[in-house]
Design a protein around this nucleic acid. Sequence first.
DNA 1: CCGCTAGTACGAGTTGCATCGTACTACGGT
DNA 2: ACCGTAGTACGATGCAACTCGTACTAGCGG
Lengths: 115, 115
Amino acid sequence: MPEPAVADPATGLLPEPARDELRLEHVLSALSDPLRLSIVQAYLRDAGGEERACGWFKIDRPKSTRTHHWKVLRESGVVRQRQVGLERRNTVREADLDARFPGLLDLVRAWRPAD
Amino acid sequence: MPEPAVADPATGLLPEPARDELRLEHVLSALSDPLRLSIVQAYLRDAGGEERACGWFKIDRPKSTRTHHWKVLRESGVVRQRQVGLERRNTVREADLDARFPGLLDLVRAWRPAD
DNA sequence: CCGCTAGTACGAGTTGCATCGTACTACGGT
DNA sequence: ACCGTAGTACGATGCAACTCGTACTAGCGG
């Protein structure tokens, strides 16, 4: 059922799990990848709560790889994606994650990459 | 280098990452498996801080599968394993995890399995 | 209308992980 | 000495995930 992943015509929101559908194991799995961890951290630290398109995060990978990681983040419920014209604008679902998994995002904020 | 994984002759401790070597991404990866999540939760809830052998956790899987999961938990730093005669006694490394990733174990305690 | 741009979709290659069977080792008891 | 027990080690299988190239689509500007 998660086929072409079409945005809601009214809000532009792409399909995502509701707050009470969030699964800790899925969120942890999404965050267990260092690249995605750095993406989420960048949103938390540098986006100032504003929506940022995928291209805002600087990363030396082909576009298809980027699409993949943002999709994993959205389907696990970590980020929300809203289609606006050409771009998909992203935000971390801080309220939902804080409600369901308090403290988790603080760990992401404090994370330091290995290298 | 992580070969037969021999226990320290003095303490019985099996090799594990030091507190400052713990990596958030590895810990999250270890905890992103529902089976391991339920294992860690059982230790936190029902072990009363005591050491428990692998066989203490009731699970309908062959022994080799069990060994695998406890190894993942140890190598990521979530549990400590101490060889005592025949058994390997396990504890969750609460102090280390609370120091490095405060709040994380609370999420595990509060977790509810999907089914 | 043409081209640029942001991004998706699809498919392939590769790697890693979960699962499990089998064989094995080491300790403890009788 | 024998056997049961607790667990590891190894190897195979199957599946899911990461990576990426290529082709494609939808807006927007001129």
